[in-house]
């Protein structure tokens, strides 16, 4: 793995939230690790371990209080809000626990969503969205609204939306948290399949040891610190 170029670097990252004037809550207390291109990493921890905070930092949605998060060698601290938006749009695909689909849009329009924030024609966007939905097995559900789809199908739409931009990294936050075991298994298999086919790095944030074990590497967080790194089965 070490021969692959580094996609993402976290160097001694900490993040402190200020609640009110004097109360400071340290959510991350100096975390360092790297994600290479095509890597498969799980970040494991119970609630309160700081994994949501880390997700926000890895997703370029937030900036660290100290330390550096580097994407392609660029420190996100030095990027403007607009540059961060572009970084998210071009390099990162998000998969959320609660899907975050827009209920008034059809499946295909939900998948088109990240593409409207980059140049390109409408027809081409739609074709790419259809291709992405087909690759997650929903080629026959293009015009269904989220409410007309099962939980597993909704998460598939969300996955299609994450990969339609051909990102370097898919960031999945508890992707099976709202699904039953069997559907969760299918969703994980789909994420791993797309990761393998497209050579996209996959970072899964989870509290389940079973899911963590599927990754090439599992980073365990506790109280804002990395307490262990385990090489997985994959």
């Amino acid at each position: 793995m070490t021969d692959r170029p580094v996609l993402l670097e976290a160097i001694d990252v900490s993040r402190i939230y200020r609640l009110g004037r004097d109360v400071e809550v340290p959510a991350l207390k100096g975390v360092s690790f790297t994600v290479e291109q095509g890597d498969h990493v799980a970040i494991v921890g119970s609630s309160g371990s700081g994994k949501s905070t880390l997700l926000n930092l890895l997703g370029a949605l937030d900036r660290p209080t100290s330390g550096e998060v580097r994407y392609d060698g660029r420190d996100v601290q030095t990027l403007s809000d607009t540059e961060l938006a572009e970084l998210r749009n071009r390099r990162i695909g998000f998969v959320f626990q609660s899907f975050h689909l827009l209920p008034r849009l059809s499946a295909v329009d939900n998948v088109v969503l990240p593409l409207i924030y980059r140049p390109g024609g409408r027809r081409e966007r739609r074709q790419r969205a259809i291709a992405a939905l087909t690759s997650v097995g929903l080629g026959d559900r293009l015009d269904h609204r989220p409410t007309e789809l099962s939980g597993g199908q909704q998460q598939r739409v969300a996955i299609a939306r994450a990969v339609v931009t051909e990102p370097a990294l898919v960031l999945a936050d508890e992707p099976t948290g709202n699904l039953d075991t069997r559907t969760g298994e299918e969703i994980m298999a789909l994420l791993e399949q797309l990761h393998a086919e497209r050579d996209t790095a996959l970072v899964v944030i989870t509290h389940e040891a079973e899911i963590a074990a599927r990754a090439a590497r599992a980073i365990e967080l506790r109280d804002g610190l990395i307490v262990g790194t385990a090489e997985g089965d994959a």
Partner: peptide, 16 residues
């Protein structure tokens, strides 16, 4: 608000 958050996560800029 959630829609706005999602759009921003997907790459919408403040001005969008």
């Amino acid at each position: 608000t959630r829609e706005i958050g999602l759009r921003k996560a997907l790459g919408a800029r403040t001005r969008d």
